[in-house]
């Protein structure tokens, strides 16, 4: 992989992450269907996770584990902390999505619709 392509790819990762987050925010804030809102929230999470992993990575980095590649170039090890954080964030995001979907099921049973405009017993 040549130099210019890699830097483009590198910016591409950041760009993709930001675009994913914006798409997710659009889905969560504009869409009227409860399911789309939940999907939007989880897309925001994915975008953020991508951004965090990209922050800890650099060109030609090796995995932060004890491996032949690491022994050859120990100074090229990528930062393991963002990866550990993302792992935690993914689990948390999974939990929140599960709770949100459970609530969507209950709202659907209670109101018979997923349209947020028709679920208005409380003031929004």
């Amino acid at each position: 992989m040549n130099e210019s392509l890699f830097s483009l790819l590198n910016y591409g990762v950041y760009g993709t992450a930001v675009i994913l987050m914006l798409i997710g925010l659009y889905g969560a804030l504009i869409k009227k269907s409860l399911l789309k809102i939940v999907i939007g929230l989880s897309v925001v999470d994915s975008g953020l996770n991508l951004l965090i992993v990209a922050l800890g990575y650099y060109k030609g980095g090796t995995a932060p584990i004890f491996s032949p590649a690491y022994l050859a170039h120990p100074q090229l090890m990528v930062d393991p902390v963002p990866q550990a954080l993302v792992l935690t964030a993914i689990v948390i995001g999974f939990g929140v999505t599960a709770v949100a979907l459970a609530l969507v099921i209950r709202l659907y049973r209670h109101h018979g619709t997923l349209n947020i405009d028709q679920i208005k017993n409380l003031k929004w």
């Binding site: 987050m21 925001v44 949100a100 609530l103 679920i119």
Partner: peptide, 18 residues
């Protein structure tokens, strides 16, 4: 109407965590 209140909370809460 607790599911509705909770959904409102989860919407804001999960943006907060992001």
């Amino acid at each position: 109407n607790s599911a509705e209140a909770s959904f409102k909370y989860i919407l804001l809460g999960s943006l907060a965590s992001t």
